[in-house]
């Protein structure tokens, strides 16, 4: 387990986010190493989802820099001056980053199989046969190979989220972002999704996981970051933080959720 970041896959430096006058993120620094599972917790409104959404530019970055694999996200640095990337260039950067949403956001007019095949075929230009084979492999991996022909409305929340994970994996990303992936699920369906995420972590995928699942953080997380009020309050080894939170705000939050 690496806590020191020599050559991190993701580097977030001095990230600020404003919505008009509202200062949501107030200078976030976070490094995520290759193969690391970085879990982010915090009360709602703490800015943890906003930070995650900045990493693949679903939110614009007001100040600071994010780089993934050494490449600056959203900008080109020309002699110290930042230039906005074109929409196409941003799309290309997003292909390397998979994202799983709280509300799944599967395409309701496509079956599970075609949800997964959509991006490989229409973004990467893979052949239908290759994409179909890969999609079936992924469905098998998330335990849903007999649901390939089902539309999202025919699947439970947990099944939909597993298809959503498979959909993101189909692009072979080097980084996976999870935005409260189990928060919209019935309690008995949470386990299946977490198991898929655990398997993914074991396979060496780099993951940033915004969640309320403290158990997942303890068991799978390599690093735990507690955010509150738009800043990182405490960050380090999950087991250590969960056992001995140093900051009073972390203590207060954990006493409420544990």
């Amino acid at each position: 387990m690496t806590i020191t970041a020599e050559n991190p896959l993701v580097r977030i430096e001095g990230l600020h986010k404003f919505y008009g006058q509202h200062h949501v993120l107030r200078g976030i620094d976070l490094d995520v190493n290759r193969g690391e599972v970085s879990v982010v917790i915090g009360p709602s409104g703490s800015g943890k989802s906003t930070m995650l959404r900045c990493v693949n530019l679903l939110e614009t970055i007001s100040a600071g820099r994010i780089s993934v694999g050494g490449k600056l996200i959203g900008y080109r640095d020309v002699k110290g001056r930042l230039h906005d990337l074109k929409t196409k260039e941003i799309a290309a950067q997003r292909r390397e980053i998979g994202m799983v949403f709280q509300r799944f956001n599967l395409f309701p007019h496509k079956t599970a199989l075609y949800n997964i095949m959509e991006a490989p075929v229409h973004v990467k230009g893979q052949s239908r046969d290759a994409a179909r084979r890969r999609a079936m492999e992924l469905l098998d991996r998330v335990g849903l190979s007999d649901h390939a022909g089902h539309y999202p409305s025919q699947l439970s929340g947990g099944q939909q989220q597993r298809v959503a994970i498979a959909r993101a994996l189909a692009m072979d990303p080097e980084l996976m972002l999870f935005d409260e992936p189990t928060s919209a699920l019935d309690p008995e369906l949470v386990g299946d999704v977490l198991n898929v995420m655990k398997d993914l972590a074991k396979s060496g995928m780099t993951m940033i996981v915004v969640t309320h699942e403290i158990g997942f953080a303890r068991e799978v997380g390599d690093r735990l970051t507690f955010m509150d009020g738009g800043v990182v309050v405490e960050s380090g080894d999950p087991r250590e933080i969960l056992a001995n939170p140093k900051h009073p705000r972390t203590q207060e939050f954990l006493s409420r959720v544990l």
């Binding site: 679903l58 929409t87 950067q93 997003r94 599967l106 229409h122 973004v123 993101a168």
Partner: peptide, 19 residues
């Protein structure tokens, strides 16, 4: 969320609209 999911997959604006 539909357009966001497609954006996150790296789809371009035109494809998101049509597909």
């Amino acid at each position: 969320g539909q357009a966001e999911a497609a954006e996150a997959l790296g789809m371009g604006k035109t494809k998101i609209m049509w597909r």
